[in-house]
């Protein structure tokens, strides 16, 4: 049957990409910018990570490239939403579609439809990095002047501005950092266990990370825990499949499990009381 320690270690493996992206979501949304573009930032990070690792032969260069690519896409989201006043959801969805198209194109044209590398990142290292990130973010938001200002910008940008906070700069920084974190999430997905990149390999994990942010009530620890809950669902469905249940339950249904969990978790959430008050506001 199911081996519990296998299940937990698989859950951590699945958690790492989700956790990074969810932290990215927390940073962006606490600053008031909806980030449904996490998917694009993960996917771009994953692609750049594997591409650089395989061509350079160094996994850590891949990690740096993935982080930078995520940050770049995040910066783009900041420009679109802040300077050009594109509605946040529209900008995020546009980025998701655009990056999906771009990575697919590059993959087919330059890498023959599949990217593989022997230069992987140690899974334990990436997971520990993820845990450290969660704790650091928690500390910054709760205990530093920077965190106070970031939260102020997400709650009431006008008040923050009149208190002397540079709202625009803080939002650009937050959304760019958000992209970098999601980019690391993408690298963790592609370069830690698999060492490969495939078309649309994030497969909606950015959306699940965003769901974890909401389910975790925009709190770093809450979002990390929610991401773990979803990762556990993912691990469970995989264990069930390998345990031979696939003969009795259609495998497609099992694959559905984590998404179903997401839906149920969000449906059970009452109200929007804990969302940053100015989240998604066009006026700043």
């Amino acid at each position: 049957m199911i081996d519990l320690s296998d299940l937990v270690s698989a859950a951590f493996r699945f958690w790492t990409p989700l956790g990074f992206a969810a932290m990215g979501g927390v940073v962006s949304e606490r600053a008031g910018v909806v980030n449904i573009g996490l998917e694009a930032m993960m996917l771009g990070g994953a692609f750049a990570g594997v591409a650089v690792a395989s061509t350079s032969g160094n996994a850590y260069l891949g990690l740096a490239a993935g982080t930078a690519t995520g940050a770049l896409i995040g910066f783009l989201h900041a420009v679109l939403t802040q300077a050009l006043r594109v509605p946040h959801i529209l900008s995020g969805v546009g980025l998701n579609l655009g990056i999906l198209g771009l990575t697919t194109y590059l993959l087919r044209v330059y890498f023959g439809g599949a990217l593989d590398t022997e230069n992987k990142l140690p899974g334990l290292f990436v997971t520990l990095l993820g845990i450290v990130t969660v704790l650091t973010l928690f500390f910054i938001l709760a205990r530093t002047p920077l965190g106070l200002r970031l939260r102020a910008v997400g709650e009431n940008p006008a008040a923050a501005r009149s208190a002397g906070v540079n709202v625009t700069r803080l939002r650009y920084s937050a959304v760019t950092l958000s992209g970098a974190l999601a980019g690391i999430g993408g690298v963790a997905l592609a370069l830690a266990a698999l060492g490969s990149f495939r078309e649309n390999m994030t497969g909606g994990r950015g959306y699940i990370a965003l769901a974890a942010v909401i389910f975790g009530r925009w709190h770093p620890l809450g979002a990390a825990a929610a991401a773990f809950f979803f990762a556990l669902g993912d691990a469970l469905q995989q264990s069930l499949q390998t345990a031979g249940l696939a003969e009795r339950i259609p495998p497609d249904f099992l694959t559905l499990l984590p998404y179903l969990l997401t839906l149920i978790a969000l449906a059970g959430l009452s109200g929007k009381a804990s969302a940053p008050a100015a989240l998604g506001n066009q006026e700043a």
Binding site: T144, L148, A152, N156, A159, G164, V165
Partner: peptide, 24 residues
């Protein structure tokens, strides 16, 4: 122009916080 979920002290010092940049 107040931030509803913040405390009185947080609202007052926002943007001109006492203490170091690393710890509020």
């Amino acid at each position: 122009e107040l931030i509803a979920p913040f405390t009185v002290a947080e609202n007052v010092v926002l943007g001109a916080e006492p203490g170091s940049a690393l710890l509020l």
